[in-house]
Amino acid sequence: MNKSRKPSEAPEQTTDRLFATERRPEDFRFDASVARVFPDMIRRSVPGYTTVIPMIEVISEQYAQPATNCYDLGCSLGASTLAMRHGIANADCNLIGVDNSSAMIERCEHYIALDDSALPVTLRCEDILDTELSNASVTTLNFTLQFVDPEKRAGLLARIADATRPGGVLILSEKVRFESDDEQAIQTRLHHEFKRANGYSDLEISQKRTAIEQVLIPETLAAHKARLLSAGFDDVVVWYQCFNFVSMLAIKANQTTE
């Protein structure tokens, strides 16, 4: 979505204190209160996020093809959308960001309008399970699939693979769980120490975990790889991991002629 007039300033951002006081347990939602603190929340909660985002720009530069569609599914406030926008060198590409949270899309529109890139961006407030996909060269699911019903993930990935052109890619970033209980315990402890180092209290860590555990359903890396290959991608490369957070590149092979 293009704006002819750019806003003079970015949306208000505040420090994430959503779980700093005792609160009634309820499932985590991407509502207006989360949207307001989301940049601070994700920076302090997801190790490597500040590495993943700039690399999405680099990967988009490498894989975006002329006259194709590029999708950011679950775009939230548009960090990965903007990274893709700056990485795509082809002016005839269509960049589409999708999120089912109206609060996220509203703020994302503002950030897109503030950005100085000329590549048009279309934002859609809809469920990514309903998004029509076609002629794709780069698609991003940046810590998004983990919030999709596990029984619907295979179908979504198959649709993405079917829509991806030869030589195209899916960037899939996820929180994962480990097959070994001992490794799971170690990685979880390290992740919690990461949060403490970023100023979260034990109460905040505990309450956030309670709120999100029925909403964010992680899977093993092996399960992700197997499903991506079954969906129709030809190769899966893990290019980043820190604790229980990983980012993968699922690649559609170039067609060869006999």
Results as ranks from 00 to 15, higher is better:
Arg17Lys: 14
Lys175Gly: 07
Glu151Leu: 12
Tyr111Cys: 04
Arg29Ala: 09
Tyr240Ser: 07
Lys152Phe: 05
Ala67Tyr: 09
Gly48Ser: 04
Phe233Asn: 09
Asp127Asn: 15
Gln187Trp: 08
Ser8Phe: 11
Glu9Asp: 12
Glu151Arg: 06
Lys175Ile: 00
Pro11Cys: 05
Gly167Gln: 01
Glu61Ser: 14
Glu258Ser: 14
Leu203Thr: 01
Ile112Gln: 03
Leu114Gly: 08
His224Thr: 03
Asn254Arg: 10
Thr15Ser: 11
Asn135Asp: 15
Leu229Cys: 02
His110Ala: 11
Ala223Thr: 13
Ala211Val: 06
Ser80Ala: 15
Ile96Tyr: 10
Asp162Tyr: 06
Val238Asn: 12
His224Gln: 09
Phe38Ala: 01
Thr15Leu: 12
Asp115Lys: 00
Arg227Gly: 09
Phe19Leu: 02
Ala113Ile: 03
Gly48Leu: 02
Ser8Met: 13
Thr51Glu: 12
Glu204Ser: 14
Ile128Thr: 08
Leu229Ala: 01
Ile56Asp: 03
Ala154Ser: 14
Tyr49Ala: 10
Val238Tyr: 00
Leu114Lys: 07
Phe19Asp: 09
Ala83Arg: 05
Asp99Lys: 07
Asn2Ala: 13
Pro54Thr: 06
Thr220Pro: 08
Arg177Tyr: 02
Gly74Gln: 08
Ser117Glu: 12
Leu190Asn: 15
Thr122Glu: 15
His110Gln: 15
Glu22Met: 09
Pro166Asn: 07
Ala163Ser: 13
Asp16Gly: 03
Gln65His: 02
Arg165Gln: 14
Glu179Cys: 04
Glu132Phe: 09
Ala211Gly: 08
Thr51Cys: 10
Ala226Gly: 00
Ser60His: 06
Ala158Gln: 15
Asp162Phe: 02
Ile186Asp: 13
Arg5Asn: 13
Phe19Tyr: 14
Asn90Arg: 07
Asp72Ile: 02
Pro11Ile: 07
Ala226Lys: 13
Ala83Lys: 06
Arg209Asn: 15
Arg43Ala: 13
Pro66His: 02
Val58Gln: 15
Val176Ser: 04
Gln241Lys: 13
Gly168Phe: 02
Thr51Pro: 00
Val58Asn: 11
Ser117Ile: 01
Asp115His: 02
Arg124Pro: 01
Val237Gln: 14
Ile128Val: 13
Asn198Asp: 11
Ile205Trp: 00
Gln13Asn: 07
Ser4Glu: 15
Asp27Ala: 11
Phe147Lys: 03
Ser173Gly: 14
Val215Thr: 12
Ala113Asn: 05
Gln65Phe: 00
Thr122Pro: 03
Asp182Trp: 09
Ala222His: 09
Ile112Ser: 03
Val238Ser: 12
Cys93Glu: 02
Asp31Ile: 03
Glu193Lys: 12
Pro54Trp: 04
Leu190Trp: 09
Gln255Arg: 13
Ile186Phe: 07
Phe28Met: 06
Glu183Ile: 11
Val34Tyr: 06
Ser60Trp: 02
Gln207Met: 15
Leu95Cys: 06
Val237Ile: 14
